[in-house]
Design a protein around this nucleic acid. Structure first.
Lengths: 343, 343
DNA sequence: ATGAAAGCGCTAACAT
DNA sequence: ATGTTAGCGCTTTCAT
């Protein structure tokens, strides 16, 4: 980096004072004579001085940087969260450093260590569920944590969540209300709370209507995704069996996309052959033919709120106890869900 | 931050040696006696010591952090770029700090200043076109720059680009080949090289076929987007006039989406009423009915390559002169482009 | 080969 | 109110 950058010392000399006074003026500390403050500001201006944040951080142990650890920035849900985080953080003078975990525990652990080494002030994280010890260590080291989308049990940190169960419950009830009886839930074989809660919502709705759950929950191996294999093949298989479901609820937009692909490949018609409701709303769902019913999450808002919570905590100190902020998902009934073909 | 974290001094004491030697062992410097090195490593292990990167950075002026400045992380093109960048950077032990510019020059400038203050090692940027002086300053300060998607004229930095002109040229020729004569190009009213080059490709194809360009290029005010107003209204207006185009080429996926919305709202049929080719391929384009013809860019690869170039430069020093790496866009002909309805 | 000491650029406790 | 000085935790000369 820069070797001939202006330092605080040069400013002090030019202003005819000492480093401490310059520092005081810069940080707005009280007790500096008016005229001295003015000449310091003048020197700063004229020299184009900007404090070296690394040096400042070493001294203050504050970096004005927050970490954002998510599964996959390419997933529109997370990129909306990221945008919300970045917008708010930027408005408050914080930078955000991005880590994709790819739902991989090892990768998450490495990211966690990096965060510890780089002395980030706080993080916003959608935890994979592992590395509990590392998260605790972070907390011990004074790094504030806000969880988003998911929560690690027993972690002493606030969380911005969505009522997952309510979302799938409503979606499944919606399908049941339309007359569906053979309804499948398609999810990943991961033990993420988010996924499990959504599964629960589905189960509760099914149970309440006395409908068959057994053999109606399909868990796609997540490593298929990791290996970039086509998830839709698995789903096509399911839709192609002897007694295929007439209604489908998908756990998230990734599976939703795979379902849409499979349905297209099989030449099935929505909603006549099969009704579909996807958790997460995507920009193109209203454009699809038929338009896709979805359970919408306020992803941008959740990211923004997480950043707000974190930065407030960082600024004011953690005055309040942990919060759990719950957002409600919003069922958008579109054309992909309708009554089953009568037979 | 952490106040009781292990320091290099404690390691030195435990290993019965000095800070310098510990530092040497940690950094793999030659000339440390075997047994001492071993006991240092043992002490490091036992104490769970991890060097404070902030302190190290202050001393070495290296942060192992790169900046990524893009327009909008929610735009799938950029989130794919970001993923490529993050993947490669992570594999090399670098962190990436994210800045959205929102195509806003002021915001870009603030980001640039932050980057300078935080002593980031290098940046990957899709420049807005302004702030030339600030970019030069960065270069002077020793921050390496790699441009992606766009380039700032006269900036002494490598660039990872796409052959924009070739992309729209091919797409427009494709429409002409199908028999279209009244072909419109829809773009933003921004002076970004990317957009202008794409416009050029369109113009060249039209000119080569002696087709009317005048009044066929439509520039949507970008501030409509910024204000979250509906771009598709503007487009609907265009498609609804006396002599509407039978073919449409859109400058990017944002406009593409707005076009699809307008077409749906007007109840037009693709390709019979209007043929559409969108610059950028999106996950759902093959799923749309009809599937959407697109000009695909290797966004992930471009991001990855940019990171590779940057980090190689950072590691080996900038040995080679600036490079311009050009990727070829790839026309994907799908159902949204077909012969015009004969009349 | 190793350790002492200076220095990176800032803040903050302390003395005046 | 202001300046002096001692850190922050590391790297890196410079002696030995």
């Amino acid at each position: 980096m820069d070797s001939n950058r202006i330092t605080i010392e040069e400013v002090a000399i030019k202003a005819g004072t000492s480093k401490s006074t310059v520092s005081r003026v810069l940080n707005g500390s009280a007790g500096v004579r008016e005229d001295l403050a003015i000449s310091v500001k003048k020197a700063v201006e004229e020299l184009g001085y900007r404090p070296n944040q690394v040096a400042r951080s070493l001294s203050t142990r504050v970096t004005f940087t927050i970490g954002l650890m998510i599964n996959d920035i390419f997933n529109p849900f997370y990129s909306a969260v990221a945008k919300g985080v970045e917008d708010y953080a930027f408005s408050k003078g914080y930078s955000v450093v991005l880590f994709n975990t790819d739902e991989n525990e090892d990768r998450e652990l490495v990211a966690l260590k990096t965060i510890l080494d780089k002395a980030v002030d706080g993080i916003i994280v959608a935890p994979t569920g592992a590395n509990k010890a590392a998260f605790h260590k972070l907390l011990l080291a004074g790094v504030e944590i806000i969880q988003v989308d998911r929560r690690l049990p027993n972690l002493d940190a606030s969380a911005i969540l969505i009522e997952n169960e309510a979302g799938t419950l409503e979606a499944t009830k919606h399908l049941i209300g339309l007359g569906h009886q053979n309804i499948a839930f398609i999810t990943f074989d991961l033990a993420l709370p988010t996924l499990l809660e959504r599964e629960q919502g589905y189960c509760k709705a099914m149970a309440a209507a006395n409908l068959e759950i057994k053999n109606h929950i399909f868990k796609i191996p997540f490593n298929i995704v990791a290996k970039q294999l086509d998830t839709s093949l698995k789903i096509a298989h399911l839709l192609n069996n002897a007694n295929p479901p007439t209604g489908l609820v998908t756990v998230n937009n990734r599976i939703g996309l795979a379902v849409l692909r499979a349905i297209r490949d099989l030449g099935l018609k929505m909603p006549d052959d099969v009704s579909v409701v996807v958790f997460d709303d995507l920009e193109f769902f209203p454009l699809h033919t038929p338009s896709i019913s979805a359970i919408a999450q306020p992803a941008y808002t959740m990211g923004r709120k997480a950043a707000e919570l974190l930065i407030t905590q960082l600024t004011k100190g953690k005055t309040e106890p942990n919060q759990t902020i719950m957002y409600r998902p919003h069922l958008l009934v579109r054309q992909s869900s309708g009554p089953p073909r009568s037979r």
